[in-house]
Amino acid sequence: MIDYQYLKPKSLEEALSLLESYGERAMLIAGGTDVMVGIRNGKFAPEALISLRGLEDLAYIEKDNDAYRIGALTTHRMLETHPLIRSELSALYDGASQVGSVQIRNVATVGGNICNAAPSADTAGPLLALDAVAVLKGPRGERNVPLSEFFTGPSQTVKELDEVLVEFRVPAVMGEYGSAYHKHSRRKAMDLPILGVAVSLKVTDGKIEDARIALSVAAPTPIRAKRAEDFLTGKMVSEDVLEEAGKIAGEEASPRDSLRGKAWYRREMIETFVPRMAQKALERLKNR
């Protein structure tokens, strides 16, 4: 067991100045469900942990005229139990409610899930399909990064060492989309996905006006299947059209063989679940 200092800044400013003085010797910790496990497994050996948990004002779910605003410290349990998320950003409900267990969801934060940048992160696909923007704060000020540009590799993001992720913004217009996320895994609980598929659709009188398809564990980072999205846009909804979109998304993915599943299997499951999640998104739109 390694020893480390545990620092508890009370404000974002204090956290940023600690980050600046410790540099690479420190790590940020939020809910800790990845960081504590990583330390135990020897993956991380920080001299200090800088805890963000004292920044309670970064845990919120709000909606204004422009956007849904989700604080980075919002727990998965908060997302899962918030009526706005369930009814208007349903894919995010699907993702958040299937992470780990209740015990994990009570502490694990959405900011942590995204910054840990596992290819299998269950909130990444939904947030990508909902066009989320990550808001980063650091010594050089604030910058907004679309989630589609946030991940650079497994466990790697564009977030600089001295920056803190503070908020996700989902454009208010996404509330008019129907959305759904499927976590494909072998067990019902306590498992990582073999594949994640998120779809959001805007449909008027049977015509698809806009589509977002996001895939996780289908490439080194969570990705958007943009060719499949373009194919769907402007088409009338039909089983054939949705199936064709699934095929295109399967071609766009670059899954690998791993312990959890072979590349060919993942590709076939993309072909299966893109149309199914599109159907689910459409049903949700109808029932609203």
């Binding site: 545990y6 508890k8 910790i29 800790g32 469900t33 504590m36 496990v37 135990r40 942990l49 805890s51 948990r53 349990r77 209740v102 015990q103 994990i104 009570n106 502490v107």
Partner: peptide, 14 residues
């Protein structure tokens, strides 16, 4: 709230 105490840093129960 139920939590896993094995990965809960003790400093956070203050």
């Amino acid at each position: 709230k139920a939590v896993n105490s094995c990965i809960y840093p003790v400093a956070e129960v203050e």
